[in-house]
Design a protein around this nucleic acid. Sequence first.
DNA 1: GACCGTAGTGACACCGAGTGCCACCGGCAA
DNA 2: TTGCCGGTGGCACTCGGTGTCACTACGGTC
Lengths: 197, 197
Amino acid sequence: MTEIVVPTDAREETRARIEQAALDLFTAQGFEAVTIDEVADAAGISRRTFFRYFGTKADAVWGDFDGHVVRLEAMLAATAGSQSVLASICAAYVEVNDYDDAALPTLRQRMRLILTEPALLAHSQVRYGDVDRVVAAHVARRTGVPPDALVPRLVATSTRAAATTAFEMWLADVRLPLARALHDAFDELAAGFPSLR
Amino acid sequence: MTEIVVPTDAREETRARIEQAALDLFTAQGFEAVTIDEVADAAGISRRTFFRYFGTKADAVWGDFDGHVVRLEAMLAATAGSQSVLASICAAYVEVNDYDDAALPTLRQRMRLILTEPALLAHSQVRYGDVDRVVAAHVARRTGVPPDALVPRLVATSTRAAATTAFEMWLADVRLPLARALHDAFDELAAGFPSLR
DNA sequence: GACCGTAGTGACACCGAGTGCCACCGGCAA
DNA sequence: TTGCCGGTGGCACTCGGTGTCACTACGGTC
């Protein structure tokens, strides 16, 4: 059993170095074409050590996604009861994805890989499952139905579908702000696709 | 390069035998716990031959999903222009999943694996991408916007999310007909989640 | 200073998925 | 019979991922 160790001071620097090396190599040559040995070499560590920082090859692309989910959960819990459930989810998604400009290039790099490379797209389903559970729990809390009932599950999966689509639109158009893309997608969804008449 | 060969008469029987062996072993012991060698042994073929029928271990679970997508596409094309776009997608989903009772146990087995086993859940994302493209093209045709615009993409991903959720509800409740589960989910989605007020 | 435990690392061996290559066997046409 | 050809099995190899062990560095404790 391989343990992912708790990050300490200097350790975080190594982790960041591996992550950046992986991101750069994957972007340049494609995810499948790069071996773990090459990433490890580029980061100045051994192959075995790579797996002490990231459980799988795909994990190196996702950064601290667990933290991301935890933040989303906190933001959902902090939303005002006065706004609609869908609006609260949209607000949380926007807030949790409110990166400052310096972080945007890396985010683009990350998301382009995740949405483009089949192996990473596949892996994303597992990660998004965590998001769905958090959102479904929020909807269940707000509506008073069990989290595994139709509406919480459906709201969770379809809002996540909306967020993913928003990311795709954001990726395709450099001038479209992420928050705007998210709002556009959520507005369509919340209104039952009014543009379809 | 391994080619997936065209099915001929007796060949299809071997394929079915491998598929059933795989389904049974995966159900009994879990997807990860079963090796290709074991599936090959159970099906009376060699490991190498397994990969001549199925490109990956996961593919053995999916059956003829490409044909499924082709049928969905045909049904979308055949829907009446008089009903709403969402209704036409729902109708196509219901029709393409209208299995006769004898096929239901295998479908349950298949879907339980796909929705339960992380590796298969991951693989599903790639398969669903094909579905999304077909649905987005249909929406684009009906609305006159490009298939990579927001609405076609969003409708494709969120209807697929609805269908997946419907499958989950169907799996969890033996007495719920699949068509009913699909309609319930699509109704919620089309109305912008009225139960959220 | 010698003695510890502990965290991080590298090296090695191993497993399983997937692929390329070649040799074999059956049927079938010339 | 000969030669071709589709399907197959065996083999070797790559690569992702895991368990194990030995080495080093460091921070106390006596």
